[in-house]
């Protein structure tokens, strides 16, 4: 048997060599039940929500389980008008993009030093920064509130951006320095011979080679900032600085009994995350994978 299986994954040999005993059938059924159960749990609520948005509110109240009678897009028109989504989206785009850009700049500079230089105390500094991953950030509500107030940045997108940049330092440093360590030194050495200074080694050689690592870490920072709720709640107060996540919380009060309108608003709020996922899921998975294998 083993000779035959050599070209296939050894895991498959279980299937190839599997005897159709009741136990094998049972194991197979159990396996697919688990996979199906989690698929249902994962996707069904989302699909159900999406279906409701095509119903009229009366249809929904009559029977939340029925399929929509037609394609009613009115809910989406209501959603945009009632919730002020454009403004919420714009604020979220500004904060998330700015946080990602600034975080990538400062963390890639730090990671460059950690990955490509050796100096005294380096290991200690790296350890302290990476240990930040385990700090329960919500426990720091009070000091963050005081710092942002002290800087005069309360209720501003800049204040929120500053906090998001900071919170993501440990995860970005971890991903970026891991990636930069894997880049061979030859090109950098050639650059030094050609007269590259410190800044040029970073900007012209290492950074361009770290594109994939930047995209991975950047995706994590962007999604974090896009989805963050606690500090948006704490550090902003007015409608003009409200981000999408804060807006979602208000849907209940805004839509009252217009359930399908509210569901449309929730659906619209989810779409950007899903789009990011569709384009970057390989990067996210590889980021988590490399993180898991390095530890």
């Amino acid at each position: 048997m083993s000779g035959q299986v050599a070209t296939v994954s050894p895991h498959d040999s279980v299937r190839l060599g599997g005897h159709r005993t009741p136990r094998v059938v049972l194991a197979k059924a159990a396996k697919w039940s688990v996979l199906a159960l989690f698929l249902i749990v994962t996707l069904f609520p989302l699909l159900w929500l999406l279906l409701q948005t095509f119903k009229t509110n009366a249809e929904f109240v009559m029977n939340p389980l029925a399929l929509p009678s037609g394609f009613h897009y009115q809910n989406y028109v209501d959603a945009v008008q009632i919730s002020g989504l454009p403004r919420l989206l714009m604020n979220s785009v500004i904060v998330s993009s700015a946080s990602t850009a600034i975080n990538m700049l400062i963390c890639s500079m730090g990671a460059f030093v950690f990955a490509r230089e050796r100096f005294k105390g380096q290991q200690l500094i790296v350890t302290i920064i990476l240990a930040g991953v385990l700090v329960p950030i919500i426990a720091l509500m009070l000091p963050y509130y005081r710092i942002i107030r002290g800087l005069g940045l309360f209720d501003s997108l800049a204040g929120l951006t500053l906090v998001y940049v900071a919170i993501n330092i440990p995860i970005s440093t971890f991903l970026l320095q891991g990636f930069m360590k894997s880049i061979p030194f030859e090109m950098e050495e050639a650059g030094v011979i050609d007269g590259c200074n410190f800044w040029q080694r970073y900007w012209l050689i290492v950074l361009p080679l770290s594109k994939l690592g930047i995209v991975t870490a950047g995706t994590f920072v962007f999604l974090f900032s896009w989805n963050e709720f606690v500090y948006a709640l704490l550090l902003t107060a007015s409608f003009t600085t409200r981000t999408l996540q804060l807006g979602i919380r208000d849907f209940q009060g805004q839509f009252f009994t217009n359930y399908t309108g509210m569901y449309a608003a929730i659906t619209l709020s989810i779409i950007p995350s899903v789009i990011v996922y569709v384009f970057f899921h390989e990067r996210i998975i590889s980021g988590l994978t490399s993180g898991a294998l390095k530890t």
């Binding site: 989690f38 698929l39 994962t42 996707l43 609520p45 989302l46 159900w48 929500l49 409701q52 929904f60 109240v61 939340p64 389980l65 999604l223 896009w226 989805n227 709720f229 999408l244 996540q245 979602i248 919380r249 849907f251 209940q252 359930y259 569901y263 929730i266 709020s269 989810i270 995350s273 899903v274 990011v276 996922y277 899921h281 996210i284 998975i285």
Partner: peptide
């Protein structure tokens, strides 16, 4: 890929989704 999808959606949106599941009347 499918199992990971909810992890990119905000906790706020997920909570609202589950509110529509758990709520007493019209809940899924």
């Amino acid at each position: 890929t499918a199992y990971f999808l909810p992890n990119v959606i905000s906790q706020v949106a997920i909570a609202m989704l589950w509110y529509t599941i758990y709520r007493e009347s019209f809940g899924l």
